[in-house]
Write a protein that binds this DNA or RNA. Sequence first.
DNA 1: CTTACGGCCTGGGTGC
DNA 2: TGCACCCAGGCCGTAA
Length: 332
Amino acid sequence: MPELPEVETVVRGLRLTVLGRRILSVTLRKTDFIDDPSLIELHLPGRRIEAVERYGKFMLLRLSAPQGEENSAIGDNAPAALLVHLGMTGHIASTAVTEPWQKHTHASFALDDGRELRYTDARRFGRLAYLSAELLPAELAPFGADPLEVTADEFATRIRSRHSRIKALLLDQTVLRGVGNIYADESLWRAKIHPAKAGASISKKQAAVLHRALQDVLKKAIVMRGSSIANFVDGEGQPGEYQQHHRAYGREGEKCYRCGTMIRRAIVAGRSSFFCPKCQRGPRGFLAISSTPEKSKRQSAIPNRKKTAKSSGKKTKRAAGNKLRKKRLKKP
DNA sequence: CTTACGGCCTGGGTGC
DNA sequence: TGCACCCAGGCCGTAA
């Protein structure tokens, strides 16, 4: 599941392989994860990829002005961009044209070096969107600070002004852009803060420790080319190695590296959260609740519910979801 | 206004 | 071998 370090790894790979290339043509297969497929087909052919940037978990492929208008483009105008989000299972890489399309390859951009930039995403939780220079700022506006650039003071302010649980705040892309489940848990373990602790209850000192822990974790993960959970590979098909350094995430039932206590898993902010119950002191009453295994909770609470929920038509659901997504995009 | 939570999308992996 | 179920991240609608 690509978070900031994984996306950064992919971005660095793309800079080496597709930067400066001109897009010759576009081929789309399934398009239900693309904002408006016709815009991509209309605007991308002929454009050059002038920059590859990361914005939180998004990638931005900045595009040259349309051919014939290149000289009229004035420097202070932000260029249009292809926005790419990898969701959970997305891959994007420069590929030889002779390489057969993978089962879940849904977009391919022919480049002027004879290769193709291909987007592959089994679950299509990702997103592609063509964004004009005019629409781009509004699209990026809701997102919070970059975790690697945010100062300790600003970080503390953002966290301590909120009553939500710290885990929810770290995952909230309008607070910080780019942190996901893995690096939230890893930084909280390092800072010895329980995921269910309220942001407002975190001291300035603790906030400073967490800020440092988060940046350390992210920087080290980038050096190791990310964490390869669920088959993440970079543009060259190479897995990351940071998963070997996880101290909390995915370690339920294993010993805490600091104190030897068994790492626990609990649902916090709707997500699996891994923590050391001894090093990371929880709010009063939290441990008693979380000590009930999640499985038995669900089984006793909602038996046989899946059947009825699944009986409705898939196509209509997908279409409805897409309409909502497009609606959201049009809002200023 | 804030926050919490259930549900939904998809398909690989798991376990019966 | 088949099949039901779980789970992941992001986001929506609803409720308090």
